[in-house]
Design a protein around this nucleic acid. Structure first.
Lengths: 207, 207
DNA sequence: CGGTTCATTGACCAACCTCAAAGTACGTGG
DNA sequence: CCACGTACTTTGAGGTTGGTCAATGAACCG
């Protein structure tokens, strides 16, 4: 599925700089695996085109989406910086192009360009900040609040436009983001629609 | 309560450097508030002595501990770097001393000392990484697995010593860390003790 | 038209939470 | 040393929420 999310951020690291340091762009089809949970981190990744999903899956088949990444955004840096393994898997959500740079070159760029290091620092801070908020919502909130918070994040990601925004996710995808079941998402959204908190028209969700 | 956690990390930023840039050390008694949820971030904080807890509380009184910070560790940087408000409150867990540095000075240090910026970068990466793991555990796991994962984190924090490690938290505190209720923690730990997964002697927990 | 994916609904159930009560440890002050 | 207060732990009974399972309906697409 192609998630229509606007490209509101510039490239995390300038693509020409990446290529100059030996990065290569790889094509992925929908569903292709970029890396798996538990694998050692060896590359810096940056989405050039398309979208990427990071997620966990439990033994019993439960699934949790850690995050979505769109054109210009990088992903998987924390374990790369720390020399750890990936805490989640990454797959392409649609036909995508992802730039890949070897760990050594990435470290060299960070040393060479303090401004880039500062960009990555802010990105990591943003990542930690978002996750703290998500954790708070997940731990102390009911399904309605969890959905509402996720939808708010969606609006922010989309640049908080005036008027109704169509949410580009299926009920199942919303379930994976919020850690709920499809049926719970559906029932909660129906209730919220009745109460005017969201709008459902022809099965499409707006907020 | 004084949490006996070994000081295994050196100061995040050298304290003399902090003082040279105008930082001051503040004393807090047990329970004193350092900052509250929703407040604008204005300072860099680093624990000099004692321990600090960051946590969220819901309207219905549910509580979630985002993290504990001990001597040498900094906290609350993400919103400071991003110009956001605090996503959680911070309180002293015991009589503590916390070094405080104004935001401007902190930014100046980062620009002036790339090595310090790199340290903070690694810390932010570590923070994001830990939170990704925590989120995974919370979303897709049952109480036993959640507790087990938390206890594993405790062991890692303590330097993964050989033999049994006494866990320096009450049942209620474990509940706050894992998002469970006291009673659920107690019942789950009892079951785990029966199965030899943890040891309970005189109400104290070891693993 | 047939197949696939997504959305929806209802009945049922179990895990975890809630509430209430009581037991245990520990420190303090008389 | 004892009495008391406080904080922590434990147990049981019962309730609710959200998950599970099964079936059906709607949209989409080649």
């Amino acid at each position: 599925m192609a998630h229509e999310m606007p490209r509101i951020y510039p490239d995390q690291i300038n693509r020409d700089l990446l290529y100059a340091w030996g990065a290569v762009g790889n094509k992925y089809e929908k569903g292709d695996v970029i890396f798996t949970e538990g694998e050692a981190a060896k590359y810096y990744f940056q989405v050039e085109k398309g979208s990427v999903r990071m997620y966990n899956m439990s033994h019993e088949g439960k699934e949790y989406t850690q995050g979505m990444f769109y054109a210009g955004q990088s992903f998987g840096e924390p374990p790369l910086l720390l020399g750890e393994t990936y805490p989640a898997a990454a797959v392409a959500c649609e036909a995508s192009v992802v730039i890949r740079l070897a760990k050594n070159s990435f470290q060299n760029i960070l040393e060479e360009y303090p401004a880039v290091q500062r960009t990555i620092l802010d990105t990591m801070a943003r990542r930690a900040y978002q996750k703290a908020i998500t954790a708070r919502d997940m731990m102390i909130s009911n399904p309605e609040t969890r959905l509402q918070n996720f939808l708010r994040q969606c609006r922010l990601q989309a640049g908080n436009p005036p008027g109704l925004l169509q949410i580009p996710f299926t009920r199942q995808e919303l379930a994976h983001f919020t850690g709920l079941r499809v049926e719970t998402v559906i029932r909660t959204l129906s209730k919220m629609a009745e109460e005017g908190k969201v709008v459902i028209r022809e099965r499409k969700l707006y907020c």
